[in-house]
């Protein structure tokens, strides 16, 4: 990609004196704007405008009655939603859970994905292809299907997980594994949630790391082995530094994706009654569409917090992109 960008730039440099008989097709100025106009218009209206709207909403008292054509205009509310959030123990509880669950998802996904990528690199081609195709099944499974599968696997009484765990000592969960319910308490529900997310996202990390490993010259490892470096040592001295940009990128993408988990939680929690398992995205949705009456202002304030967190991480992503020359 960087090379192609380079090539384009070279093409765009003014050519020294085009011959009189061969004038390069000069493109008229308005063309690029015409080409991007539909895209810009759609993105501005559908995605960009709502971002501003979100901030505006968060500063107003806004509910369903304000949506009615004859209803009152949303009233200015200042920073009341934010101050309320800051002093609300429940919001902090949700925020803490979101950060902790996200950290676990990202951490486990990255470590597992990297290990699997290294493993695939070591395996003979035929076997690593089989494993890669198998991983694609996990990666390709739609979030809804994946969540339902895990809900079924961890079902009390008849779920496969509980039947298999039945051999474990009962005191671990109180009254026996077979009828242990995973979806009531935050700790057990988040365990299953993390498992679903890791199951779906480790293949992407593994395949990316594998692709990255192929770009590292084999002589480096050869030299390290001659110097007596083991696997651990050569990972940290060669693989990691060589693939650092890739690892940063994967890390950032995983954080961004895992901070916003919604669908899987929607299925696993099966409704909004159990407030102890809320994550930020879930809290936003509940405020906007499940609370009665809906509190669009409060929902938007939480959305602003979440967006700020994600944009902070994205800033790092953008920096990597700019450094790689993707914006040129």
């Amino acid at each position: 990609m960087a090379q192609t960008a380079e090539a384009v730039r070279a093409e765009d440099r003014p050519r020294p004196e085009p011959g009189p008989d061969r004038s390069p097709p000069r493109r008229r100025k308005p063309t690029p704007y015409l080409l991007i106009a539909p895209t810009l218009l759609l993105l501005a209206v559908v995605l960009l405008w709502p971002v501003g709207q979100m901030v505006w909403n968060s500063l107003h008292a806004y509910s369903t009655r304000h949506l009615l054509p004859a209803g009152p205009a949303p009233g200015w509310n200042g920073f009341a939603h934010y101050t309320h959030l800051l002093s609300d123990p429940f919001f902090w509880h949700v925020l803490r859970n979101t950060v902790a669950v996200c950290a676990l998802m990202v951490g486990i996904t990255m470590v597992l994905g990297t290990l699997v990528g290294l493993l695939l690199h070591k395996l003979p081609k035929w076997f690593s292809t089989i494993v890669a195709v198998g991983m694609m099944l996990a990666w390709a499974t739609p979030a809804i299907s994946a969540s339902l599968i895990f809900r079924w696997l961890f079902l009390p009484e008849r779920g496969l997980a509980n039947v298999l765990l039945d051999g474990m000592p009962d005191w671990l969960v109180g009254s026996g594994w077979l009828d242990y319910s995973w979806f009531l308490e935050p700790l057990s529900l988040f365990t299953v949630l993390i498992l679903v997310i890791v199951w779906q996202s480790f293949p992407f990390v593994a395949v990316s790391v594998l692709a990255g490993l192929k770009s590292v010259p084999g002589e480096l490892y050869e030299a390290a082995r001659v110097d007596g470096a083991g696997a651990w040592r050569s990972f940290w001295s060669i693989t990691f530094p060589m693939l650092r940009p890739l690892f940063s990128l994967l890390l950032v993408l995983q954080i961004i994706w895992d901070l916003r988990v919604f669908t899987q939680l929607y299925i696993l929690a099966n409704g909004f009654q159990n407030t102890s398992v809320y994550l930020l995205s879930y809290y936003i949705y509940q405020q906007g569409f499940s609370a009665s009456p809906p509190n669009y202002g409060m929902g938007s304030a939480i959305a602003v917090v979440m967006t700020a967190m994600i944009l902070a991480v994205s800033a790092y992503y953008l920096r990597i992109m700019i450094r790689q020359g993707e914006t040129r």
């Binding site: 909403n57 995205s281 906007g288």
Partner: peptide
């Protein structure tokens, strides 16, 4: 920017 955040707007 996550859809989960923009959906209300």
């Amino acid at each position: 920017v996550p859809m989960e955040a923009m959906i209300i707007s």
